[in-house]
Design a protein around this nucleic acid. Structure first.
Lengths: 224, 224
DNA sequence: TGAAAAAAGTGAAAATATTCACGATCCGGT
DNA sequence: ACCGGATCGTGAATATTTTCACTTTTTTCA
């Protein structure tokens, strides 16, 4: 691992991937160097936070000058493991699974969807965007065969827990879970949750708090 | 607003929506009461955290007994503003936008997709799942007309910033942004970001850190 | 009715994460 | 070579969030 000593907070890793995106953008624009202030402003974080985030991994800037755009990008790619190619499986070929398969962000350099899984006999055996759909019962085999490292779970909620168990049993260490179910994992497994319905409810909370309409049935007092 | 005093961290609000989901599940199973321990275990958080989260809003349990499943669910629905109906617009009718439109989690009680927007003349004027696709130029009008409160941004990255500006100008206060671009908003606007490519990179980081293959080109040392 | 058990609520402690502010270093011009 | 300005790197100060551990309240059962 790259980091030198103390453990890196996950929020930091999340920001690193954002820094990288901005750097790649600046690189395309022909920028050679960038200061922590410019880079941080782009993402609406404090420059000191950017510097602190990088400090977990080493020193990459030049005082008085800033950072070399290309060098820093390269460092971030290494920290994020993007110098490798990761094979992804999507489990659950519904609306969301299919959309993700075709989503540009998922087919960036470094990632490749290598297999799809479902338990619907109608779907199993066919293909989407040229990727074969296997039955989930074959998960362990296909994972081994195709050297899959990352699983994206887009199954319906009731199926999620079982699917997650199968995934873990198949030896997968990285899960991106879109099902609205919390998955219990050991410490050696990274499971990130993307919960769209929850996000909406958060928005709803803030909207309701601002009491947007103030309408007649807008009472929110809590009984008892 | 409901909360009594100090401001509520956003992570707390996020957890509230998860608690609610579990409660609804337990309710369907016929449970009448639930302890903080049972509820918290389900989501792999500490019971004390659940209690602290609720404490921002009041006291809802009975010592010695736990919480009434239905009462607590009702409280959470109110806190989260789910006793109202919110109209959503999706901007960007590509793969992801279309998938979300059809996604169950987005059509739960409390939410309704009321309009779609795109700037592709091929799409504008047609409909998806019975929802009309407008040109983004008409955003402000349609937002007013249909009383839209929440916008989901699923446009490509280069279009995101402009789209976000238009959204904000149209008076929207709640944005769920799927574009890989950081959006600067005033304090009265809530903008949540769902960044799928970033999540993958986080997974990649942890995978690389574990040095999964240890293979020949697995070197990760940083030069200089 | 009283004692024991269960479980919420909560102030304080601990752990994390962010921000500040300043010393260190580097570049460019003279 | 030196000076002034820019900007990184970082320890210390804040701020935030989580967890603990204890107190209070309620229920149950003998």
């Amino acid at each position: 691992m790259i980091e030198n000593g103390k453990k890196v907070p996950q929020v930091t890793v999340k920001r690193l991937s954002r820094y990288l995106r901005v750097l790649e953008h600046f690189s395309e624009q022909g920028y050679e160097t960038i200061s922590s202030e410019e880079l941080a402003n782009e993402l609406h974080v404090k420059p000191s936070q950017l510097r602190k985030d990088l400090a977990y991994f080493g020193e990459f800037g030049t005082r008085g000058m800033g950072y070399s755009v290309s060098k820093l990008a390269e460092v971030l790619r290494k920290i994020l493991g993007l110098h490798r190619q990761w094979a992804i499986a999507i489990i659950g070929v519904g609306n969301l699974g299919t959309a993700l398969l075709r989503y540009k962000g998922l087919n960036e350099k470094g990632f490749r969807v290598a297999a799809l899984f479902d338990d619907d006999p109608e779907k199993v055996g066919s293909a989407r965007s040229g990727i074969h759909i296997y039955h989930v019962d074959n998960l362990a085999n296909v994972v081994k065969e195709k050297n899959i490292q990352i699983v994206i779970l887009t199954v319906p909620a009731p199926a999620a827990r079982a699917a997650a168990e199968a995934v873990i049993k198949a030896g997968i260490k990285s899960i991106l879970n879109f099902a609205p179910v919390s998955i219990k994992t050991g410490p050696e497994i990274t499971c990130l949750q993307v919960d769209i319905a929850s996000e909406l409810k958060i928005l709803s909370h803030y909207l309701a708090g601002q009491d947007v309409s103030g309408g007649k049935d807008g009472k929110v007092a809590i009984p008892g």
